[in-house]
């Protein structure tokens, strides 16, 4: 066998070492942030912290979680993530179900599908979207973060393809038994499509938890900022003008350890659902990418 070959064995050793290093490189930034967040502020400011905390303390976390504005933005994010997952998921199911039917049941199916898919190919861009939100009077409202993302052609196509793989006989049997379309969708298709629905829900949840730009442009009051937007202003832009902080709060918030704690808390929900993400995203990608 090829792997008993001497040359291959040497390659194999290098391969193991190389891949290990590469994988560690992917985790180092997070480990570093975690280490800094648990370190004493003087050691962190002086740059003494590498991958292990120096002068271990949880001060940065008590400071961060004691900050009312930070905690408030977490709640905004949670609310946004829930609404932004439930409504679009419902909408996606309602669209994908009829479009998964055959051409002779629903006329113009291809045309309607293209109507949605076209939005994947062309878009108005940020300025027209901004003016739309302004004209609709949604500025500074939670809905400005959710409604523009209810329809995603990518999600529709993914679910539509999944629905199509469900045997027709099941649906026919349901219709025979007098079930309407709504009932068939929610009582039969929904339970059978759990893997696809879980994948899409995770897509949506991660998207909403991570989104920051719309919060920045649509929210005029920082009390409506989702966490990602809050972190963007405080940590990346280091712009405190929106936040009305006292000088003392300002000094604390720009502390390196506190920044790191904020970053880590921002990443924490993603880390918590990561096992599911890995499992379902891989499925989703394979479903969408190599279905031919």
């Amino acid at each position: 066998m090829y792997y008993k070959n001497r040359g291959y064995k040497i390659f194999n050793v290098f391969n193991y070492v190389f891949l290990s290093l590469l994988a560690i490189l992917c985790l180092i930034p997070l480990i570093h942030v975690l280490a800094v967040s648990f370190s004493g502020s003087a050691a962190a400011a002086a740059g003494f912290v590498g991958l292990w905390p120096v002068n271990f303390t949880i001060d940065a976390y008590t400071e961060t979680l004691g900050n009312e504005k930070f905690v408030n933005s977490i709640f905004v994010s949670i609310q946004r993530t829930i609404l932004g997952t439930v409504i679009p998921m419902l909408m996606t199911m309602l669209i994908a179900y009829p479009l998964s039917k055959s051409n002779d049941i629903i006329k113009g199916r291809a045309m309607i599908t293209w109507f949605f898919v076209f939005t994947m190919l062309f878009s108005g861009g940020i300025i027209p979207n901004y003016i739309l939100i302004l004209e609709l009077g949604l500025m500074n409202s939670m809905w400005s973060l959710i409604l523009p993302h209810t329809i995603s052609a990518f999600h529709i196509v993914l679910l539509l393809n999944f629905f199509r793989s469900i045997p027709k006989e099941i649906e026919e049997a349901a219709i025979m038994d007098g079930a309407g379309h709504i009932k068939t969708l929610f009582k039969i298709y929904l339970p059978l499509s759990m893997p696809a629905i879980a994948t899409l829900s995770l897509f949506m949840m991660v998207f909403h938890w991570n989104s920051w730009f719309d919060g920045l442009i649509y929210m005029s009051s920082s009390s409506n900022y989702p966490l990602a937007t809050f972190l963007q202003t405080v940590i990346v832009q280091q712009d405190f003008s929106q936040l009305n902080l006292s000088p003392e709060e300002m000094a604390n918030i720009s502390e390196r350890t506190v920044k790191s704690a904020q970053i880590f808390i921002g990443a924490l929900p993603i880390l918590l659902v990561y096992p599911f993400l890995q499992k379902y995203f891989v499925k989703g990608i394979v479903l969408g990418g190599v279905k031919e």
């Binding site: 930034p29 920051w212 990346v236």
Partner: peptide, 11 residues
């Protein structure tokens, strides 16, 4: 899975 806000802050 981490956003560019998180990674930007780290970088």
């Amino acid at each position: 899975f981490l956003s560019w806000v998180i990674l930007g802050g780290i970088l």
